[in-house]
Design a protein around this nucleic acid. Structure first.
Lengths: 148, 148
DNA sequence: TTACAAGCTCAACTTAACTTGAGGTCAAGC
DNA sequence: GCTTGACCTCAAGTTAAGTTGAGCTTGTAA
């Protein structure tokens, strides 16, 4: 550990709280990048920590790795976002996030004007039908959180 | 279609926007119930619509079917929630929902005080470490949204 | 210089939440 | 009475996001 600038995968795992296998996985998905030592071991720049943090936070609010990857990719040069770039990301996700926030609040506040009420007009329920549904989108597990 | 009170699985699917296969699935998971005709076909009471709506909304904000099932189960008599019962559910989920809302807002607002900033103290990041992490929780896919 | 923790690759397994398909039954209209 | 569109069951497939394990290589501390 000489340079203190390069991190091994284990160190990144430790500092980011993400498993080594997950880091491998993110790399395979193109979300993070590393270069290799002569012995084929990964070395990461410190910026990877920020990148991983972004990935996890976005994930935790229900954005898929695919979307996160696309967003990061869309940044000029594919670089780790600066504060400026970050604001761009936020903006791109803003609608999605706003919608989700609204839904959560409704649910939290008891949803009295929808399900909690006695009304049976599911078709017109403000929460259920206000926005596009994820119906009919091919097979497999659907996103747990709507997104898009 | 005589009584207009009983719904077939296809009708429920139509009115709820949920696939027939998903309804079968929910039933297998014990989230909804039906009785059968002499010909072994499912018939649902109208309350199933409300129940399904609850399931989908909770799901959309990231609550797993298992949790939803447990919550519905916990209601007296396992009945479809009235407005009162519904408030109980909301209350049970409140902490979870509050946390999620806070995270979403942070993300939406650019997260300037965390990732967007230049600080590299990932370990102390207010967003990353304020709450329990989902680290080390057995194999398989993790919940996309934290929950718990 | 050798032991052994940390890395590497690749394939297979896991979970949640469904969907798809095969093979067979029900029921409502003509 | 027959046809045709809903239904039924059960097994197997699918996707996302990783984890686990086997078998092999690196690198570093004693």
């Amino acid at each position: 550990m000489a340079a203190a600038t390069e991190l091994t995968v284990g160190q990144v795992a430790m500092r980011s709280g993400v498993a080594v296998s997950a880091l491998h996985f993110y790399e395979a998905r193109g979300l993070i990048r590393s270069h290799r030592t002569s012995g084929n071991q990964r070395r990461y720049g410190r910026d990877v920590l920020r990148r991983v943090a972004i990935i996890r936070i976005a994930q935790e609010v229900g954005i898929s790795l695919a979307e996160i990857g696309a967003a990061l990719e869309s940044l000029p040069e594919g670089r780790t976002p600066t504060r400026e770039d970050w604001n761009l990301l936020s903006t791109a996700w803003r609608d999605q996030l706003d919608r989700k926030i609204a839904q959560l609040k409704k649910l939290r506040d008891g949803l009295t004007d929808c399900i909690g009420c006695g009304c049976m007009s599911i078709d017109k329920c403000p929460l259920r039908n206000k926005e596009d549904r994820l119906s009919a989108q091919g097979p497999g597990a659907r996103r747990l959180l709507v997104a898009r």
